Simulated scan of single mutants.
Amino acid sequence: MNNCESEEIVEAANIAISNLLPTKSRSLYDIAYNRYKKWCAEKNVQVYSENVLLAYFSENAKNYKSSTLWAQYSMVKSCLIIYDNIDIGKFPKLIAFLKRTGDGYQAKKSKILTKSEIDRFLSSADDKEFLMIKVGLILGIAGACRTDELVNLTVDDIEDVGSSLIVKIPNTKTKILRIFVLTDVGNMLELFRKYLSLRPPHVKHKRLFLYYKAGKCSSQPVGKNTMGKIPSVVVLTFYKCLF
């Protein structure tokens, strides 16, 4: 500790540093960093030079595809800056190597339903089975919502003003309140109101999305895994069952 810095200042700085990594994925960063540290210990590495990093990622390139290798690099880089005050982003040969591993790599593109296909699903799929899926699809597309944003959405976050819905997304990734408006296009508002009307009166929590089956809602809130499967359910239903 610098003699000019009090313990209070050092402690405050350490707390600030500990919050530099993303909260939700911090465990992944620590895993990547600890894996690198373990490798260094096994190789008796004392200095984190560019050659050391080249050797480490060259070895890992045998086990990871390019996109995963870049993700590992990004996490290790962040941790080394925070914990060891070392910026491996300034290692040109390492960057060149990582780029070289990506030559010829093409990411797989997900199949995307068109607007007309989505409209057909909303109008043709049986509400008795797919009403919750429809409402999740509508709000997810209209507000470009992440899965956890839909999961955490509450009835208090949505204001029905008759001709439209005003939706507030308070728990965003950027920590900034996001608001979007869902207008009365097609039967979207009708679907939302129908789903909301099925909410059991005894539900104690305010989560919007409840498990739905055979035309009825239970009091159990929908989890992240179920919400995350909405796109695949829509695609499978569209191509295998409906049309």
Rank of each mutant, 00 (worst) to 15 (best):
M1A: 00
N2E: 14
N2P: 10
N2M: 03
C4T: 07
E7H: 02
E7T: 02
I9G: 00
E11I: 10
E11A: 14
E11P: 00
A12M: 11
A13I: 13
A13K: 15
A13W: 11
I17F: 03
N19F: 12
P22Q: 04
S27V: 03
S27I: 02
L28D: 10
L28E: 12
Y29D: 01
I31D: 09
I31G: 00
A32V: 08
Y33V: 01
R35T: 07
Y36P: 03
C40W: 06
A41P: 00
A41V: 02
A41L: 03
K43M: 14
N44C: 06
N44K: 13
V45G: 07
V45W: 11
V45R: 07
Q46T: 15
Q46N: 09
E50T: 12
N51H: 10
N51I: 06
A55K: 10
F57C: 01
F57A: 06
A61K: 11
A61D: 08
K62L: 11
K62D: 08
N63C: 07
N63H: 08
S66A: 08
S67H: 05
T68E: 02
L69E: 02
Y73Q: 04
M75F: 09
V76D: 01
V76Q: 05
K77L: 04
D84G: 06
I86D: 02
I86E: 04
K90Y: 11
K90L: 15
K90G: 11
F91Y: 12
F91L: 00
P92D: 09
K99T: 05
S110N: 14
S110H: 12
S110P: 04
L113Y: 01
S116W: 04
R120T: 06
F121N: 11
L122W: 03
L122N: 01
L122D: 01
S123P: 05
D127N: 05
K128D: 08
I138E: 00
G140Q: 14
A142T: 08
G143I: 03
R146I: 03
R146T: 03
T147A: 06
D148N: 14
L150F: 02
L150S: 03
V151R: 14
L153K: 06
T154L: 07
V155S: 09
I158R: 08
S163C: 02
I166W: 15
I169F: 13
N171E: 15
T172G: 04
K175I: 10
I176Y: 06
L177R: 13
I179L: 06
V181N: 07
T183D: 14
G186T: 11
L191S: 09
L191N: 07
Y195K: 05
S197R: 14
S197E: 11
L198M: 15
L198N: 12
R199E: 01
P200T: 12
H202T: 13
K204N: 08
H205R: 03
F209W: 07
K213P: 00
A214F: 05
G215C: 14
S218R: 10
Q220V: 13
G223S: 13
G223M: 04
N225S: 08
T226F: 04
M227N: 09
G228V: 07
G228K: 09
I230F: 14
P231E: 14
S232I: 14
S232M: 15
L236F: 01
C241I: 11
